[in-house]
């Protein structure tokens, strides 16, 4: 088991490295020159070179990316070294010598420096991550709790009016884009009808758990609604499937009460695929709930990614892509390890 976990972690790290390399290459393949972008419209070639050095990008030559092959590989090398050892910015040594008072230290693991925001990526991500994490956590609790509960209810009352209502409603909600639900909640519930105070992110340190949670409710509902609809349908399907299993019939034949048959025997087996789905979905939400964060103006990873994209803030984008990727890979590993605890056949076999 331990050897398996270690192997999985190694593979995960290798995947992250490969992913970052691909990300770099992709950004270099884009026709936009980040130095030009950072420097502004009325920028002389000298200033542009200056900006390029400050950013730490290799020289581009005139007009085309002549160092196309060398560029990303070289940059990626510096980036990888920064993650392991830490870096100093500006990237160019001469620039650092010229103005030592402007040098920024970026300790390992350094994800880069945003010249646009004049801060390290670590700082920016460090601020955005708790916001996204809070929304994701609140949403995942909501959607798993209600999704599984309603799904089981639908499965138990299969074919009834209630079941049809649940299936229909979840399909209906599933079809709604989250920007609709989010906008509706914000505009009507919060603003026009004043049913719920306008949410704004407050950390636990600032306002305590109560304030933190109450501010998260609307964004979390927005995010959870879409997933919940899917989970209702999946839970219903999984429970119906496991209710048809032979071992559930055995449980009934033993004389167990219906409730015990359902919760101890049928639901237990249905939980396995649900845990897998939930782990991966949670990880992907951690990478940033772009629409939800934008609607409610929560400064999470998703919103950070959007603004980095608008401003062509490459270091930030790369940092977010890597972190989101790391979440997914980690979640995969955790789900696989969890599997061993859930399913004894995996544990021993």
């Amino acid at each position: 088991m331990l050897a398996y976990v270690i192997r999985r972690i190694f593979v995960g790290v290798a995947m992250l490295l490969a992913m970052s390399l691909v990300t770099f290459t992709l950004f270099f393949a884009s026709p936009v020159d980040p130095a030009q972008y950072a420097c502004g419209k009325n920028c002389s070639p000298v200033q542009r070179e200056q900006a390029r050095k400050a950013l730490g990008y290799p020289s581009r030559g005139e007009g085309v990316w002549e160092s196309n092959i060398k560029g990303p590989a070289e940059m990626w090398g510096t980036f990888a070294k920064g993650i392991v050892k830490g870096r100093q910015f500006p990237a160019d040594e001469e620039l650092r010598k010229a103005a030592p008072e402007n040098v920024v230290d970026c300790a390992a693991p350094c994800f880069g420096y945003s010249t646009y925001s004049i801060r390290t990526v670590n700082e920016m991500v460090g601020e955005a991550l708790p916001v996204t994490f809070s929304i994701a956590l609140a949403a995942v609790i909501l959607w798993i709790f209600f999704g599984v509960l309603i799904g089981v209810l639908a499965a138990v009352t299969k074919g009834s009016f209630l079941d049809r209502g649940i299936v229909g409603t979840s399909l209906f909600l599933y079809a709604f884009p989250s920007f609709f639900i989010g906008t509706f909640l914000l505009t009507y519930i919060s603003i026009k009808w004043s049913l719920y105070p306008l949410p704004s992110y407050t950390s636990i340190a600032d306002g305590g758990v109560g304030t933190w949670a109450s501010n998260l409710l609307l964004p979390a509902v927005t995010l959870a609604m879409l997933y919940m609809a899917g989970y209702v349908r999946m839970t219903r399907a999984f429970v119906l499937e496991s209710q048809a299993e032979d071992y559930v019939r055995t449980a009934r034949a033993k004389g167990l009460a219906t409730r015990k048959v359902l919760f101890k025997h049928a639901l237990r087996a249905a939980l396995t695929p649900l845990v897998t789905m939930a782990g991966l979905d949670f990880a992907s939400v951690l990478g940033g709930a772009i629409i939800t964060e934008s609607i409610f103006n929560f400064n999470g990873l998703g919103k950070l990614a959007v603004s980095a994209n608008t401003n062509y803030d490459l270091p930030v984008l790369i940092g977010i892509v890597l972190i989101a990727g790391a979440f997914v890979i980690t979640a995969n590993i955790i789900v696989d390890i969890l599997y061993a605890f859930i399913d004894p056949r995996v544990r021993v076999g």
């Binding site: 071992y247 219906t258 087996a269």
Partner: peptide, 25 residues
């Protein structure tokens, strides 16, 4: 009827692998 099941009438099924719950000892 539930109380009769397993106490007065019980049943053995065809495939013991699928008839026993894989997650419980």
């Amino acid at each position: 009827m539930r109380k009769m099941r397993g106490r007065d009438v019980s049943m053995i099924f065809q495939d013991p692998l699928s008839a026993m719950h894989p997650y419980y000892t």
